[in-house]
Amino acid sequence: MIEVLGLSKRFGGHQAVDGVAFRVEPGEFVALLGPNGAGKSTTVKMLTGILHPDAGSVRVAGRSPQRERRALAREIGVVFGQRTGLWWDLPVCDSFDLLAAMYRVRAAAERAAELRSLLDLDGFWHTPVRRLSLGQRVRADIAAALLHRPKVLFLDEPTVGLDLLAKERVREFLSGYGRQGATVLLTTHDLAEVEALCGRVLVMNGGRLAFDGTVADLRQRAGVPTLLTVEYAGEPVGEPAWPAVARDGRSLTVSFDRSQVGAGTVLAALGELGEILDIRLHEPDLEKMVRRLYLHPACARDDPRLL
């Protein structure tokens, strides 16, 4: 559904995107992560036809975003969380009428009614967009982006600035939308969102793709230490083979690298030190892993998918 090869873009002396390549298959829900200035937005803008790349090729839904921008616009939906695609001074319903005309949407009334109930827009359907709360506006914007039944949905920081409740509502809807087999590319800083929604993660840093894989892969690859706390029946005897982070009477916590050794092996080795009553495994959180990837992109370079 999305094919990117050798994509590059330079602004003045700054290489914003540098030889990025990836594929997204139909039905995939993919997250695009990276620190500010990593080239995420520039990449999305090249995929949606806003920017023209200096080098490389892009196909989205079988079309070139640059040569067939207008035809592609009918196949994709785009939501920029910071901006609205709706008519600022008009009621929400008017924006939908205009978009339906612009995109020549078949059975537009039914489609609008369906999205209205899915995203719960009824309470403000006749309110001018400029009077909506941010959460209401984002929901209306997502509905508007889906009105013409796009094949690919691009979401750029859709929940930035929303309160927890509003975030949860958007996330719930997107999760349901993803389950129906939709293709979505989500740019975000919110890693909880990534864990909840995305099967696959692309991490960009310095204009390059630093990682491409599942969230589980990311845990493996990032090499952020996992902590294992073991409660023994008596005081453990001897030194563990991995660095002890804490040792307090009958409890021992060691840290190890999941990319080097499996949790089972570590546990078996710790069993040598005494009889185990209970264990607790602390998975490193996604945030830490991603930050580590940003700092040491080399640790993911050996990923075979990047070749």
Partner: peptide, 12 residues
Amino acid sequence: GEFDAILLRPWP
């Protein structure tokens, strides 16, 4: 950067 939104429409 408001021109982004204009370019996302299926129109000249």
